[in-house]
Amino acid sequence: MASTMMILAARQYLRSSGIQRLPAALLSLGSAFGGALCLAVLIMDVAHVTGHLDLMRAVQPAYEPLSLLAFLFLCAGFAAQPVVRRAQHDMRRKRTVGLATQLEPLWKRASLVRPGLSQADPLAASADDLESRLHREIVEIRDAMIDPRVTFDISAAERALLNRAESHLLGLDTRATRTTASPGGRVGQEGSS
């Protein structure tokens, strides 16, 4: 069982990046120490049964440190998983707030030339979900850009900001998800009506 967990944790380590590797690394180490502990117990049991008490006494000092190390690293690995997820969630939330705040002037300009759903339904604009708010801003800016009835031009810096916001919503702004998401996808190309 320790070897199975070690293989799974090592695979997770290889598939992860950055701080996401910490829980997998801790679990891999804990599993390795657990495997070594199992091996030590087997050697001591076989040595005891076969009468090789010198071998049993030679391996016995490894039992307690291996038990402690396996316990500590496994507990740390399991405890680190929710901590890392929470930290990533908080970082994503801060980035979402920052991007929405940076896009707001551009979104207000777009809303002046082409009013969107946010003007028709004030509840849609004041959504508590920050990612929904950012998505709505992106959709309404893109709608103003592609609507042939209005003229709405944006600078290269504004376009780069808009692309960063879209990449953020798609999860393409982190190395870990860059390989699984489809490149070139756009958020909100559908109309806002």
Rank of each mutant, 00 (worst) to 15 (best):
M1Y: 03
A2E: 13
M6L: 14
A9S: 13
R11H: 10
R11D: 09
Y13A: 06
Y13F: 14
Y13T: 04
L14T: 10
L14C: 07
R15I: 03
S17D: 09
G18P: 06
Q20W: 14
Q20G: 05
R21W: 12
A24I: 06
A25Q: 13
L27S: 04
S28Y: 03
L29A: 15
A32G: 05
G34K: 00
G35E: 02
V41K: 05
L42S: 13
L42E: 06
A47V: 01
A47M: 04
H48F: 14
V49H: 15
G51H: 05
R57W: 07
A58L: 13
Q60D: 12
P61M: 02
P61E: 03
L66F: 03
A70K: 00
F71K: 13
F73G: 04
F73N: 08
C75D: 02
A76D: 04
A76C: 11
G77E: 01
G77Y: 00
A80H: 00
V84P: 00
A87Q: 12
Q88L: 15
H89I: 13
M91H: 14
M91D: 15
K94S: 15
L99P: 00
L99D: 04
L99K: 01
Q102E: 15
P105V: 07
W107K: 02
R109Q: 07
A110W: 00
S111C: 09
L112Y: 03
L112I: 08
L112H: 08
V113A: 11
V113T: 04
P115L: 08
L117T: 06
S118D: 03
Q119G: 10
A120F: 12
A120R: 15
P122C: 04
L123S: 07
A125K: 05
A125V: 01
D128W: 02
E131A: 04
R133L: 07
R133T: 11
L134E: 02
L134K: 01
R136H: 08
R136C: 06
I138D: 00
I138E: 00
E140H: 05
I141A: 00
R142I: 02
R142V: 04
A144D: 00
P148M: 06
V150L: 02
V150M: 05
T151G: 08
D153I: 02
I154P: 03
E158T: 05
E158R: 03
R159T: 14
R159L: 14
R159H: 13
L162Q: 08
R164W: 06
H168K: 09
H168Q: 07
L172E: 11
D173I: 06
R175K: 14
R178P: 01
R178K: 15
T179K: 13
T179V: 08
T180N: 07
S182M: 14
S182N: 05
P183T: 01
G184M: 02
E190A: 06
